[in-house]
Amino acid sequence: MTDDRITNRFSYDEIARLVAPGSHVLDLGCGSGDLLDLLRRTRGVTGRGVDIQEEMIRACLEKGISVFQGDLDEGLKEYRSQSYDYVILNETLQMIHDPVYLMNEMLRVGKRVIVNFPNFGYVVNRLQLAWLGQMPVNRTLPYEWYDTPNIHFCTRRDFVRLCDSIGAIIEAAVDLRRNRRVAGIFANFAATDCCFVLRKQESRV
């Protein structure tokens, strides 16, 4: 098991718990393939990753993970509908130019979507903005505003509203404060990171 508390990343063990054994997984923004590697070892998944950087492609190949070098902003139009059990977007949503488009694409391609993001509504972010009057820079959001890959921040509540508006049903949610679980009712205040399992609402005929 990896100890995610020493890093800023969302607990891979928590994500792994959300994935049914033996399923077929597409990991968007897969980085060096660590999450897929963990899912393969602990959940027996098959799957592939997508990343935009050559070093990440190389790192995935070194782990024996199949990977496609591509830009998520181009969407998933080449992927068949419902061709994966899970499409995972791990700590990447806030970097996407058109998150709604990508969310809809993920819901089309995956039977389930697992997505996590830093919660802009986390109390420390609120205090930095409200009391110091400056953009939050802290352990979970380590970037200055002018030098950040994060272009679309949202709070947990914003995200739930988005799911509602695009017909995504929330099947499960995991809210973490520095990789320890926090209770759902306080989550928009207390969670540094939120993770949701979604599926597409059956279209009403």
Binding site: R58, S66, V67, F68, Q69
Partner: peptide, 8 residues
């Protein structure tokens, strides 16, 4: 099973 990379 396919991997793809575009080398810059």
């Amino acid at each position: 099973d396919v991997s793809y990379t575009e080398i810059d």
